[in-house]
Amino acid sequence: MKCLRIYATPDGESHFGEVEIPMTAKVTVAPGAKPFQVSKRYLASSMEFTQIPAGMRQVDWHTVPARILTVRLTGAVDYETSDGEVRHVSAGEFVLVEDTHGKGHLSRHSPDEQTVLWIRLPDGLDIPPA
């Protein structure tokens, strides 16, 4: 499974990339149900539900305080990185935001209130625990 990623290079420029989340194990959750594919477990240090108020529109250039996996439950956002690339993220999608230094990114929000789950991942998704 692929995960959209926003990251900063050492020179402080932000970019989009992708992280591949390996899905290998199969788990049967109920008799007669098809098995689920699952990833390895990833450590999370905390999680927060956030509500972005209606009418927020644009949040100017900013960084994040830590590696955060955002899971958009409602609403939509357009992210722009400092290299000028823009990506649209709708409800039901998730993004690993790792630009903790540098210029950061812009967020242009849909006009309605939005709910987003923020999950802090101390090691990101590229380094599953052993």
Rank of each mutant, 00 (worst) to 15 (best):
K26T: 13
V64K: 00
L43T: 15
S90M: 07
M56I: 04
L73R: 13
P65D: 00
G12L: 05
T50D: 08
G92I: 11
T28P: 05
E85D: 09
Q114C: 14
A76H: 07
G12K: 02
T115K: 09
S107H: 03
M47K: 12
T115Y: 07
S82I: 02
P53I: 05
D123I: 07
G55C: 09
M23H: 06
A30G: 15
Y7K: 03
R72M: 14
S82K: 06
R41P: 08
H88M: 02
V27S: 04
T24D: 07
K34H: 12
L43D: 12
Y79K: 08
A76I: 05
P111W: 05
G75T: 05
P129Q: 04
C3P: 10
G104C: 08
F94R: 15
A54T: 07
E48Y: 08
F16H: 02
I21Q: 00
V77I: 09
D60L: 13
K40A: 12
P111T: 03
S39A: 11
R5T: 11
A130Q: 10
E18A: 14
Q51E: 15
L117Y: 02
V29F: 14
H15T: 05
K103V: 12
P129N: 06
F16Q: 01
H88D: 04
Q51P: 03
D99N: 04
V59T: 13
S90W: 02
P22S: 09
A8H: 01
D126G: 14
D11C: 04
L69N: 01
I52S: 01
Q114I: 14
G12Q: 02
L117F: 06
L96E: 10
I52L: 09
P31D: 15
S82C: 02
G104T: 09
P10Y: 08
G17R: 03
G75S: 01
S45C: 09
L69A: 04
V19A: 12
L4P: 09
P31T: 14
E98Y: 05
S107L: 05
H101E: 11
A25E: 15
E48D: 10
V27G: 03
D126Q: 11
V97E: 00
T115P: 00
D126M: 06
S45F: 15
P65G: 00
